[in-house]
C-alpha cells in the first residue's frame, strides 16, 4: 500500500471538488473494497476524500411514492428498513445475500454500486489485465474463468460486476443521482451507470472524475411479486455464480408484466428486456418461463470454465419466474 493523504469532506459539493482537483484522488466510504485493493496496490490513490460521514445516510419517501436512498446508507440499514422490506423485498433479499454481516455494516449504497470486479487476475499485479493496466491483455480469457461473464463481454475483458444489490436495483429501475465538482446534479438510470468493457474495460461507469453519487431513487414499487434468487458455491459469503431478480405481475393466469435482471453474468446488472417483452401477456406457464429464459441468454457466450453459467442462468430464471408468478 502506498502512502496517501486523507481529508474528511464537509459537504457533497466540497467532496466532489476535492476529488476533481487531483487526478490521483479517490472517494472513500466504507472502504470494504478500496482498502483491499490499496493493500495490493491495485488502487494507488495519493489522496482520499472520506465521504462516509456526509449527511447522505437517510432513506426518505419521494413525492411519487418511492424511496430516495442516501448514498451513505449502509447496506445493513437499507436491508433492514421496514419500508424497503415491505415494498421492495427483492432489494432486501439481494442485500442480505451479499457479503457478510460485518461487510454489510460498513459498505455504503454508492460504494456497493461502484465496487470493482473480483476477477482474480485483476487482483494479482503480476498478471496481465486490461482493466488494471491498459493493453496488457486479459489473462482470464484463456485462463481460469469460472466466475466470469457470458453476456456483454469483450476480448479485452470478461469480468463481472459482483454486486447483488445492484441487480435488484436494476430490476426496480432505480435512478442514480450525482453531484459534479461544479455543483451540478444529474440523474442516471441504473442501466446506464455501468459501461460494458468493449475496448476500454478500465472505464467502468459513466461518472466523470469527481462526480459523486448522492442518492439512489427507487420508483414506486412496480406491481407484482418480487423474488431475488442468488446461486452460489456455498451457503453464505460467496459471490453469485448467477442471480436473478424477477418481478411478475399477473392477471388471472396470464402475465401482465415482468421485470428481470441478472447478476453474475456481465460487467453490469443485466436487464433481460427481450424476455420481459415475451412474457408480457403470455400465459404463466413453465413453457413461457423456459422460453423467456432462452431468450434472455440468447446471446450468451461461454469461455470454458464458465460455460455452465448459461444453462444455470436459464434454469435459475425459469424457476425464479415461476416462484414470482406463483402468488403474484
Amino acid at each position: 500500500m502506498q502512502s496517501f493523504t486523507y481529508e474528511r469532506a464537509a459537504s457533497a459539493e466540497q467532496a466532489a471538488a476535492a476529488v476533481a482537483a487531483r487526478p490521483d484522488a479517490k472517494f472513500i466510504s466504507g472502504g470494504t473494497n478500496l482498502l483491499d485493493l490499496m493493500k495490493l496496490e491495485i488502487e494507488r490513490p495519493a489522496h482520499l476524500v472520506d465521504i462516509s460521514r456526509l449527511p447522505l445516510d437517510r432513506i426518505e419517501e419521494t413525492a411519487a411514492g418511492g424511496l430516495r436512498v442516501g448514498a451513505q446508507v449502509r447496506n445493513s440499514d437499507l436491508a433492514a428498513d421496514p419500508r424497503v422490506r415491505s415494498r421492495y423485498p427483492m432489494l432486501t433479499q439481494a442485500l442480505l445475500a451479499g457479503a457478510s454481516g460485518q461487510i454489510r455494516n460498513k459498505a455504503s449504497t454508492s460504494g456497493n454500486l461502484l465496487q470493482r470486479t473480483r476477477c482474480p487476475y485483476f487482483y494479482d499485479r503480476n498478471m496481465p489485465c486490461n482493466k488494471r493496466e491498459q493493453g496488457s491483455g486479459c489473462a482470464a480469457l484463456q485462463g481460469f474463468n469460472r466466475m466470469h461473464a457470458v453476456l456483454g463481454a469483450s476480448q479485452a475483458c470478461i469480468a463481472v460486476h459482483p454486486s447483488d444489490m445492484a441487480v435488484a436495483m436494476a430490476g426496480l429501475d432505480a435512478r442514480i443521482e450525482t453531484i459534479s465538482p461544479g455543483g451540478e446534479t444529474r440523474t442516471i438510470p441504473i442501466g446506464d451507470l455501468h459501461r460494458l468493457p468493449e475496448a476500454t474495460p478500465h472505464v467502468e461507469t459513466v461518472l466523470s472524475h469527481g462526480e459523486m453519487i448522492v442518492a439512489v431513487t427507487l420508483p414506486p414499487p412496480p406491481p407484482g411479486r418480487q423474488v431475488y434468487r442468488k446461486v452460489r458455491d456455498r451457503a453464505s459469503y460467496a459471490f453469485a455464480l448467477v442471480s436473478v431478480a424477477a418481478i411478475v405481475e399477473k392477471s388471472g393466469d396470464r402475465i401482465r408484466s415482468a421485470r428481470i435482471a441478472m447478476g453474475g453474468v456481465a460487467a453490469k446488472p443485466w436487464r433481460a428486456t427481450e424476455a420481459e417483452r415475451m412474457l408480457a401477456g403470455a400465459a404463466a406457464s413453465d413453457g413461457a418461463f423456459t422460453d423467456a429464459a432462452e431468450a434472455a441468454l440468447a446471446g450468451a457466450v461461454g469461455h470454458g470454465d464458465n460455460d455452465f453459467k448459461i444453462p444455470l442462468a436459464k434454469r435459475t430464471m425459469r424457476h425464479t419466474l415461476a416462484a414470482a408468478a406463483e402468488s403474484a
Binding site: R118, P120, Q142, A235, S236
Partner: peptide, 30 residues
C-alpha cells in the same frame, strides 16, 4: 467434498484463487 480447490494456472504456475474470497472453506451456513 463440496468446495475446497486451489486452481494452478498452467500458463503462469500460480495459484489463481489465492485468498479467502475465492478459495472457499465451509462457513457456518454450510
Amino acid at each position: 467434498a463440496l468446495m475446497e480447490q486451489t486452481v494452478l494456472d498452467p500458463r503462469y504456475g500460480h495459484f489463481v484463487n489465492h485468498d479467502l474470497a475465492e478459495y472457499h472453506v465451509p462457513v457456518n451456513g454450510d
